[in-house]
Design a protein around this nucleic acid. Structure first.
Length: 957
RNA sequence: GCCCGAGUGGCGGAAUGGCAGACGCGACGGACUCAAAAUCCGUUGUCUGAAAGGGCGUGCGGGUUCGACUCCCGCCUCGGGCACCA
């Protein structure tokens, strides 16, 4: 613990001045002001209504809601990479407070879910105990950073008072269906009324019967199939290593779990599924209305993957086979069909003679995981089913094959193969000698590139032709595309033909799958769902929420071999027999029900936490409507509303950021929020990366013990190799904020993090470099405070004009930089001003007050503790947090004399000192009279003289 | 393979059509010190030159322009995302 702010420190050997700004003095100052802020409740942001309301303060101040992606409370606490975004939002929020905004900034903890649970399993400590102590540690670390957060609004997703509302929102989703006519979610009771009145017919299998003739149970089943969250028996990502299923978004491209890197298998299970696909169009289209980085929008667009095309039905002996194609215009070239090996019609289609071959192929396809199956390098394989289907436009019988390049999870799991117009189909047709018929004549250049003579005979083609081209071989007696050249025209012609003849219709498909929402784990929100004797799910009544997570001594998931894809999972909650069954009256008398034993995935709590920050103590509603409208409501007509600035890493591009948009849109449709989107502006901060070192055996060695010698890196006398990567335990290169607080102080640490580059760029951590920012603060301190006596040496003398100009240029630049989150350049401008001030202090012995006051104010968003201390010494009444950020005087932004570069043929040859208001003629005359210019021109007459008024002159010879 | 993003001193970076390298680190020289650390002052892209000065220089090759790190075309390298999506 350092000395307190007001007691002198004893320097080593007495040589260090007692009040030099160093880590020890900083520690005292920082603690003093952190305590002060807490007692003074400096950063509490008032609401417009409810218990946190303070209308007098709200009035006249524009709101600003800034948000960080909240952390997982992991056991190892924070390393220096974590706070990058938190510091940035804090600087921005503090700056905005000084421009008169009512700033809401808080931080909570995403404490349910796999990371916390995996950690608990490793340590053997109950996740609640673990989570709580981890949160306490992180709170301590974050408090030392001096973040201007409203502590009242800090929530944890594991709080019962929080997950009670997570469960409530789940039930809102459970009680809703998506009306594709109105394009919005509505209450399920309204669907029931529409069925009863005959306004709408169920589209499920039972729909042959009239609604009123169905049994209650049958009606229930139909309704359940419409819900936005429903139980589905469908292929899921089963990860035995984690003992749970995972969402598509949680599975890596290699077919392994995002967490733990265990193998993931596809298998059928009955699981809760969220109908996020109902929102695919809105999730896609509304991206255009968001102020997000284009790269993230693109990742979401790709993930949603909307393709427009047509569904086409082919008749076969086993019934109609439906395919999806983006190129219905190529239907005349469909010379065979390919079904996924898992397609439901394969058994019915396969002829006797092909049975064993088909069975063998399906078996081998089943053994490959998705990754192996989708490996590009693999040769296409497949087997003939022996059956045929009728091409609806040509009337021809075309063979039906199965092949693993057709995926069950996309489209209909079956394709029409057009080998002349699709690379994959071409390859397959060549491999199995299936017919290839050209339906478009490729342009001449195409043949030229492939060095073959133009010919509609595909036998000579080296590959399929994909693109626009004149249609050939594309007519029957009702329709002809022949001679057409436009793909879009051909598509619309064939689509209307398909619709008229009931062979198909235009259609849209998405890559986005519905969201697998249950996990066979312990550390998550229990579902507010019970089952009756018919195994039908029922909502737990609102007054019984939360459904508390039962305390378990054995919270571990069932231990399974990571490669055991067969064993059924047994969720830990299924072992709690006394909790499992419950007696309830759900409106038809007391009955015994069985509880849902799965828990929600880790993303549930983070889908709506920003809303709870707004109204964290509300026991009646998840958020008060008026409060939500104040902080999140649309600013103008057409504005989506949402958080004003959301800062976080890019890793959540298609997980958290997609799920929370989905939940938010459901809440919007149901009238619970006024904003259409949760996060209006998104900013992705970069990562702090670090060097790591390996010895000759390839072992990582502690990075902090490696020394650099003549460009070599030495650990314990041995040369080691340097690499560069994420900060982490395995690379032994973690640096913690605590080390930085001890060595330099929080203000220095904050400045260093902000100074090393633009916020969106990743950059390496270099502890060696941190001292630069400490020196800057030390010099600033020394410019205002006597290091020996701790007394201010600030004078009321006016500052010389040039220093005053430097101040105003600095104010102007810092203002703009802060506004645009360019803290690195803001800091360098402040250093420049301080360097100019240092020269003045060295010459005169004191700092003019007119410089000291605004300099301190400008520093305060970046390094608030030292700024508070200086502010107190300066004796200004208004708290620095709520003073007005300095405003530059435009008259002082320009000097009377300016320096103008002179170029000859674009090369710099001289610099001229000129009056700031010099005219072009005067500038030309001045330049031509300059000795260097005369020498450089060497008597030549310029062919042209380019003058940028008051900026530059260029002689062209 | 497709789609994004990025390449500037020894290092982090600044400049987004107009003086390339702001600011910081490091390095070098000096002051203080018995000495060191800390601190302070100065130098620091590179080649050439005693100096003044000059040549070269923003991944590579072209182009537009009086003028290009910046705009356009083609490539290379690195990072990220998607990947048999019909």
């Amino acid at each position: 613990m350092g000395s307190t702010a007001d007691t002198p420190q004893t320097g080593r050997g007495g040589s260090i001045p007692a009040y030099r700004y160093n880590a020890s003095l900083a520690a005292g100052i920082e603690q003093k002001w952190q305590d002060h802020w807490e007692q003074d409740r400096t950063f509490e942001a008032p609401n417009t209504a409810g218990p946190l309301a303070d209308p007098a303060v709200v009035a006249g101040r524009e709101k600003l809601f800034i948000l960080d992606m909240f952390p997982y409370p992991s056991g190892s606490g924070l390393h220096v990479g974590h706070p990058l975004g938190y510091i940035a939002t804090d600087v921005f929020g503090r700056f905005k407070r000084m421009t008169g905004k009512n700033v809401l900034h808080a931080i909570g903890y995403d404490s349910f879910g796999l990371p916390a649970e995996q950690h608990a399993i490793v340590t053997g400590i109950h996740p609640r105990i673990n989570t709580e102590s981890n949160i306490a540690n992180m709170r301590r670390q974050l408090r030392r950073l001096g973040l201007a957060h409203d502590e009242r609004r800090s929530i944890s997703t594991t709080d019962e008072s929080y997950y009670r509302w997570t469960q409530w929102i789940f039930l809102q989703i459970f009680n809703s269906w998506y009306d594709d006519r109105l394009k919005k979610a509505r209450n399920i009771t309204e669907l029931e009324k529409e069925f009863e009145s005959g306004m709408r017919q169920p589209t499920t299998a039972q729909s042959a019967k009239k609604w009123k003739d169905l049994s209650k149970l049958e009606q229930r089943k139909i309704l359940d199939d419409y819900r936005l969250v429903y139980l589905a028996n469908a292929p899921v990502n089963w990860c035995p290593g984690l003992g749970t299923i995972l969402a598509n978004e949680e599975v890596t491209a290699e077919g392994r779990s995002d967490i733990g890197n265990y193998p993931v298998f596809k298998r059928n299970m009955r699981q809760w599924t969220m109908r996020i696909t109902a929102y695919a169009d809105r999730l896609l289209d509304d991206l255009d209305r968001l102020d997000w980085p284009e790269s993230i929008k693109l990742m979401q667009r790709n993930w949603i993957g909307r393709s427009t095309g047509a569904r086409v039905r082919f008749a076969s002996a086993a019934g109609e086979i439906e395919v999806f194609t983006t190129r219905p215009d190529t239907l005349f070239g469909a010379t065979f069909m390919v079904l996924s090996p898992e397609h439901q019609l394969v058994d019915a289609l396969t002829t006797k003679s092909q049975q064993s071959a088909v069975e063998k192929y399906r078996e081998s396809a089943r053994k490959l995981n998705d990754n192996e199956r989708q490996n590009d390098d693999r040769k296409k394989t497949g087997v003939d089913t022996g059956a045929t289907a009728t091409n609806p436009v040509t009337g021809q019988q075309i063979p039906i094959w199965i092949a693993d390049y057709v995926l069950m999870g996309y489209g209909t799991g079956a394709i029409m193969a057009v080998p002349s117009g699709d690379e994959r189909d071409f390859e397959f047709a060549r491999a199995y000698k299936l017919p290839i018929v050209a339906i478009q004549m490729p342009p001449g250049e195409w043949f030229a590139i492939h060095d073959i003579a133009p010919s509609p005979d595909c036998a000579s083609w080296p590959s399929a032709y994909v693109g626009e081209g004149r249609y050939i071989n594309s007519s029957n007696k009702n329709i002809s595309l022949d001679g057409k050249r436009s793909m879009s025209q051909a598509i619309s012609l064939i689509n209307s033909w398909l619709e008229k003849n009931e062979f198909g219709e235009s259609a849209i498909t998405y890559k986005l799958r519905n969201w697998l929402f249950s996990r066979q784990r312990y550390w998550g929100e229990p579902f507010p769902i019970v089952y009756d004797q018919d195994d039908m799910p029922h909502a737990v009544p609102d007054k019984l929420l939360p459904v508390k997570l039962p305390e378990l001594t054995d919270f571990k998931p069932q231990a399974l071999d990571p490669n055991d894809e067969k064993t059924d999972p047994l969720p830990p909650l299924a072992r709690v027999t006394e909790w499992l069954s419950v007696e309830l009256d759900l409106g038809d008398g007391k009955k015994t029900y069985r509880r849902e034993v799965n828990v929600m995935p880790q993303w549930a709590g983070s889908c709506w936490y920003e809303l709870r920050y707004l109204d964290p103590t509300n026991t009646e509603q998840f958020v008060d409507a008026e409060v939500e409208r104040y902080w999140m409501g649309p600013k103008t007509a057409g504005h989506t509303g949402g958080v004003d600035l959301y800062v976080g890493g890019v890793e959540h591009a298609v997980l958290h950021l997609l799920y929370s948009r989905f939940w938010h849109k459901v809440l919007f449709d149901l009238g619970h929020v006024s904003s259409e989107e949760p996060f209006h502006k998104l900013f992705n901060q970069g990562y702090i990366q670090a060097f790591a070192y390996r010895d000759s055996r390839g072992q990582t060695v502690p990075a902090n013990e490696v020394v650099e010698q003549n460009g070599d890196f030495i650990f314990e006398g041995e040369s080691v190799a340097r690499e560069y990567g994420k900060m982490g335990k395995s690379l032994k290169n973690i640096v913690t904020p605590d080390e930085m607080y001890d060595e330099f102080g929080a203000d220095t640490f904050r400045l260093y993090e902000m100074s090393t580059g633009p916020l969106d760029a990743s950059r390496p951590w270099n502890t060696r470099d941190v001292v630069g920012m400490q020196r800057f603060l030390q010099r600033t301190w020394r410019n205002l405070v006597d290091e020996e006596t701790n007394k201010l040496h600030v004078s009321n003398d006016p500052a010389p004009l040039e220093l005053r100009r430097a101040l105003h240029r600095c104010i102007h630049g810092v203002h703009q930089d802060m506004e645009n989150l360019r803290f690195n350049t803001a800091i360098s401008k402040l250093i420049e001003l301080n360097n100019a001030l240092t020269m003045h202090v060295n010459a005169t012995g004191s700092t003019p007050r007119e410089i000291a006051v605004p300099l301190t104010q400008m520093l305060s968003p970046l390094c608030p503790h030292i700024a508070e201390e200086l502010w107190q010494k300066l004796g200004v009444e208004t708290p620095i947090t709520y003073t007005t950020f300095p405003v530059a005087d435009p008259k002082l932004l320009f000097s009377e004399t300016i320096e103008i570069p002179v170029q000859i043929n674009g090369k710099l040859r001289a610099r001229l000192a000129a009056p700031a208001d010099i005219s072009d003629d005067e500038l030309r005359a001045l330049a031509l009279a300059d000795a260097k210019v005369i020498a450089a021109l060497a008597g030549a007459t310029p062919a042209k003289i380019v003058i940028v008024p008051k900026r530059l002159i260029n002689f062209v010879l």
